[in-house]
Design a protein around this nucleic acid. Structure first.
Length: 509
RNA sequence: GGCGCCGUAGCCAAGUGGUAAGGCAGAGGUCUGCAAAACCUCCAUUCGUCGGUUCGAUUCCGACCGGCGCCUCCA
């Protein structure tokens, strides 16, 4: 089995063959940090996370770069409105992005280059393009790339098959820059007073100004892989589908014109959109949901990951409350199983587990090797859950093989949710309660508030105290009181579950 | 107008030229004081519509209907 990936360049699925195995250079277009990134953005980053994890699980040595665009029109406009510099405007959103990324358990890239910290390489790139004739200075002082000098322009987006609608945006006529060709794109924008006002202008041999968006990625990618490996071509470049044209098309043009290489990246991969009721999630539609919104609502990261991975990355994903609820339930079940499986771990695998583990590994690998077919990988995982639960019910033991097969899927997908668990032994007069996580041991006779305390730590103690009372009620067969306490705990988000050995588990997601 | 994508059970969602994975929800059962969790069973003769190719199509081709994206410095 070999890994095959869909390449936007060829519109086909191809066996993945990095330029210098086992090394893989992976560049991902990251967020523009002008605001909080929404889960539509994070859908793409979760796709990248899966790619990254699967490449590493497959034995590749990945060097992952994700840029942070910290200078662009939106940032300058917003900074101007607020009367702050772009650096000040952006700072909190960079922090927020990192927090959200960590919350979603996305593996951090090795490098997060920021555009404003790579101005020098950008200037060198523009100089190179001016020197070899691919770029020219407009009368407004900006520098443009001439697509007439780059015959391969349009390969990625199959531009030769398109016919740009004149004035589709209604903005071409209002374009104040003077380009030689309407499709030429700006590499370096001449500084304007608004740019200066927010500290978004740099000196350059060809005039003071700021980098164009497309330029950033090329300069940063080439700089970083050049510095580290002396390479000029990326193995994989990722982004959202909306970046295919013109962003990635322009990156290819300027990069290849600069390096003389036929490719900027060997494989281009693009994630489809996440939609809300059929429409793409976007600030201007007012249908934004951010990871922090979901976090506030108590949605577990594993559930969000599961939701995303249950749809193929090249397929649009529709976010609904129903889909989210389904993912939460599924994620919870996976976590429940994981705990059960690990607790039953034995030195040797039972025959049933051996067979189930083989099947899981084979199905899981085949699915992800097939252009990251995560939905199929998830299906294989659930099939193992069902089989594993049955085997456990029959008393069979999972050994190293089963645990490793399971562990591998968990490391790649990372979609399970394990609620915090606290256990109390009750009803058997075996001495003090077995308490995991907290040391509270309130006497049964003490007064106990019906409402939980405010402090998080005290809450578990409170729940455990009630659980012990319920245990006492149970042992004197006062089931009415026992049920009342269970309902009380449930209304505050705690679940009580009795086990066969007479103890009770109290859990909170 | 150009380029492209999608339409599979109540919901989400894989998939193959030979008669449909998985998840969630739902129904019944086992277990339990009752629950919960777990397990078992059931839950699309059918894959937008109409044609065509084929021994056979949900899967290939065409048309149509419906939804969506890009062509705007949007992931």
């Amino acid at each position: 089995m070999t890994l095959t990936l869909h390449n936007t360049l060829t519109r086909r699925q191809e066996p993945f063959a990095p330029l210098a195995p086992p090394r893989v250079t992976l560049y991902s277009c990251g967020p523009t940090v002008w605001n909080y990134a929404h889960i539509g953005n994070f859908r793409t980053f979760l796709f990248v996370d899966l790619l990254r994890r699967w490449l590493e699980a497959s034995g590749f040595d990945v060097f992952h770069i994700m840029n942070l665009t910290d200078v662009d029109d939106r940032i300058i406009k917003e900074a101007g409105k607020q009367g702050v510099t772009i650096a000040d405007l952006v700072a909190p959103f960079v922090v927020a992005f990192n927090e959200d990324r960590d919350y979603l358990r996305i593996t951090p890239a090795h490098e997060y280059p920021r555009a404003t910290e790579f101005v020098a390489p950008m200037i060198r790139l523009v100089e190179g393009l001016l020197a070899n004739g691919a770029a020219y200075r407009g009368e407004d002082g900006s520098v443009y790339f001439s697509i007439a000098k780059f015959p391969a322009y349009g390969r990625l987006s199959q531009l030769d098959k398109r016919e740009l609608k004149a004035g589709a945006s209604g903005r071409i006529s209002s374009d104040e820059y003077d380009k030689e060709n309407a499709q030429d794109f700006v590499l370096w924008k001449a500084a304007k007073p608004e740019d200066e006002a927010v500290a978004a202008a740099w000196d350059a041999p060809f005039g003071r100004g700021r980098p164009g968006w497309h330029l950033e990625c090329s300069a940063m990618a080439l700089e970083l892989i050049g510095r580290r490996y002396g390479a000029k071509v990326l193995d994989i470049h990722t982004g959202g589908v909306d970046l295919i044209f013109p962003h990635h098309e322009d990156e290819i043009a300027q990069s290849c014109a600069f390096t003389g290489e036929p490719d900027f990246a060997k494989v281009w991969m693009h994630a489809e959109f996440l939609n809300v009721r059929g429409t793409k999630m976007s600030k201007r539609f007012g249908n934004i949901t951010t990871p922090r919104d979901l976090r506030t609502d108590g949605v577990e990261p594993g559930a969000i990951r599961l939701l995303v991975y249950q749809t193929h990355y090249r397929q649009r994903l529709d976010l609904t409350d129903h889909a989210l609820a389904a993912a939460r339930e599924g994620s919870r079940r996976l976590g429940e199983f994981a705990r059960r499986l690990e607790a039953a771990g034995a030195p040797a695998d039972g025959a049933g587990f051996l067979a189930a583990a083989e099947r899981l590994s084979a199905d899981f690998t085949a699915a992800l090797d097939d252009d990251l077919n995560a939905p199929r990988a998830v299906a294989a995982v659930f099939e193992f859950v069902t089989a594993g639960n049955r085997l456990l019910d029959q008393g069979e033991k999972p050994g190293p093989r089963a645990l490793e097969s399971w562990g591998r899927t968990d490391r790649v997908l990372d979609v399970a949710t394990q609620g915090a668990i606290y256990a109390v032994s009750v009803g058997q007069a075996r001495g003090p309660a077995t308490v995991l996580g907290v040391g509270a041991d309130a006497a049964i006779e003490d007064e106990l508030a019906e409402a939980p305390p405010i402090e998080a730590d005290a809450q578990s103690a409170w729940a455990l105290a009630w659980a012990r009372r319920r245990g006492a009620a149970k042992s004197r067969r006062d089931f009415k009181d026992a049920d009342r306490i269970r309902d009380l705990l449930k209304s505050h988000g705690w679940e009580v579950r009795d086990t066969k050995d007479g103890s009770s588990h109290v859990t909170r997601a």
